[in-house]
Write a protein that binds this DNA or RNA. Structure first.
Lengths: 337, 337
DNA sequence: TTGAAAGCGGTACCAT
DNA sequence: ATGGTACCGCTTTCAA
């Protein structure tokens, strides 16, 4: 009886077309929700689609000229929740517009980053979002060559290839320093993670220091390690500093590190901020819920992701968009300084 | 002079072939690193690739029959660091094997989940990894239809469609209860987040409770909210419970919630675990660095991601792989209970 | 509103 | 070791 059973390899437009008694192109129109198809035909086709179990092949679609709905996304890391937040914001907007992201994690390695760009570009994505590590010349050439919208995210402290969305980390560093100086602090120390890989942390530190120097001050001590930022690392380094007479306030490379500092202080029975004051960066939720809320700067990561998505969508829609978007940051006073 | 300049639309295999004076298929072989090409030809072609600035088009490649190197990944959320960890582990393995993930976030919505499956399947991925929310019948049908390897991750408490990698959340709940009972606790309360969406949290609670009942015990109080888990939520609910005479120990739906509880206890000047004991789930790093290390269960999220990747890679390699992988969990005694 | 034919850029298969 | 030729599944003209 059923003769065509085992040819059931993959349902194509042609199969649906046959089942519905129309042409392939008509089915294609229905699938894409185009207007110029009669209601009767639409229902016939939709019925056939369900009956055959057709699943749209976007590979073929994209290839035939309709653009891809994939967006390449390259981030340095995911274990750092900061980038997970950005990705989250990005996804929200992209998904609701029918786009998907293809992910690449560079692990703060600029060689790997270049490879990823090349590899992901091979999927002919409609756009690219990247939180650059360093962006080698090779990467830049690839980006310029591929005529696709590119959004660099996180810091706007340098000249964009195409578009940037983020904040000025230098300003963030300075703002925190001004605030603390305004609060009367005069004795500072710095606790940081690997600043080679994380150039944004380095920029914040530079900004903070510049502001100190404007006031004839400087870091009295620094503790650093060549590792990714983490709570235990912050705790360990803080412990080191405290062992040899600490400054009045510790500025941390970010909130993870600062939470470590806070925990170390608590463990030693220190009163924060009376005995030791602390300031971080990022505005992580957990820092704001701590017994002593962290003095920090909210960096609006999810918003950065959303805005990046909007930039791309704007471009696709053909509208003129800004090259440079500063989402701004918010100083959270907290209670730790 | 230059007549062919503006036709520089996109460099294809044909362009490279011409530039190198060989056929397209030969270039294709070089690009794919196949062995059967002479050294001389290889160098000629490689030179031509660089000169023309050719970027491989994987869309066309995948379409022509060579399989896609994309893996569809569907997760309920990214703001919950648990899934970011899984994704991280997944990426590590996938990338080193030359695969990329295409991401979908279901936001704990099973309708959305089904849409995502359908949509991502359209890219003809080589495999699918999903941390299922509920997996509607529609989703299941899609998964069965698409003859591709599917790995469900996180919990192994139910029958897999194809393969599963994770732990038994029921066991995790029970183990914690047994441990605490063994430590002498007899008075328990539960603090949880939205248990509708997060069925794994529900299973842990059920397991915990089952173990209590085996010992003639039960939760004396419960505080719950219909929101995603978070530190502030944990803190707020703990506050509620403490206001009306708390039980001896609070079991939290996860570590985020438990950190909130810990912070609330500290803020009230309670001694943990003397005045109030706390237990969580996940083994988040921050909980282990807290002044009072959290008593919790390490769920090896990154490992789950890695194993899931390995399952897929194994399938691709044609090897026989297990359908069900239990990565196990580790009880971290901590100091909070 | 509907359809026919010509690609999109590769790769599998079969020759040479 | 190298090349010719279909063909992957869809969409874009262009016609009817």
């Amino acid at each position: 009886m059923k003769i065509d059973v085992d040819k059931a390899d993959r349902v194509t437009l042609a199969d649906v077309a046959e089942a519905a008694g129309v042409s392939e192109i008509t089915v294609s129109r229905v699938v894409r929700g185009m207007a110029n198809v009669s209601q009767v035909t639409v229902s016939k086709v939709e019925e056939a689609i369900v009956r055959t179990g057709y699943v749209r092949n976007r590979l073929a679609g994209a290839m035939a000229g309709a653009v891809s709905n994939q967006i390449a996304v390259i981030l340095p890391s995911l274990s750092n929740s900061v980038f997970a937040d950005v990705l989250d914001g990005l996804e929200v907007r992209l998904q609701s517009a029918g786009f998907h992201s293809v992910l690449g994690i560079s692990n703060y390695d600029s060689e790997r980053e270049a490879q990823l760009i090349e590899s992901l570009l091979g999927w002919q994505p409609a756009g690219l979002v990247i939180a650059p590590t360093l962006l080698s010349d090779r990467s830049l050439r690839l980006l310029e060559r591929g005529r696709l919208p590119v959004v660099e995210v996180m810091d706007i402290d340098r000249e964009p290839t195409d578009m940037v969305v983020g904040i000025s980390h230098r300003q963030a560093g300075k703002s925190m320093a001004y605030y603390l100086i305004g609060r009367g602090y005069r004795s500072f120390g710095y606790v940081g993670h690997d600043i080679e890989g994380d150039h944004r942390a380095a920029i914040r530190r530079d900004g903070f220091r510049a502001a100190l120097q404007e006031n004839g001050l400087d870091f009295e001590t620094e503790a650093r390690a060549d590792a990714e930022s983490s709570v235990p690392l912050g705790r360990r380094l803080t412990g080191q500093i405290l062992s040899n007479g600490a400054p009045r306030l510790l500025y941390f490379s970010n909130d993870d590190m600062a939470m470590g500092g806070l925990f170390e202080a608590m463990s030693r029975g220190l009163q924060v901020p009376r005995d030791l004051a602390l300031a971080g960066f990022n505005g992580l939720q957990i820092g704001q819920s701590a017994p002593v809320a962290l003095t920090t700067i909210e960096s609006h990561r999810a918003l950065i992701g959303q805005r990046a998505a909007e930039q791309l969508l704007g471009r696709f829609a053909g509208s003129e968009v800004e090259r440079r978007i500063d989402v701004g940051f918010t100083l959270l006073p907290g209670a730790s300084a």
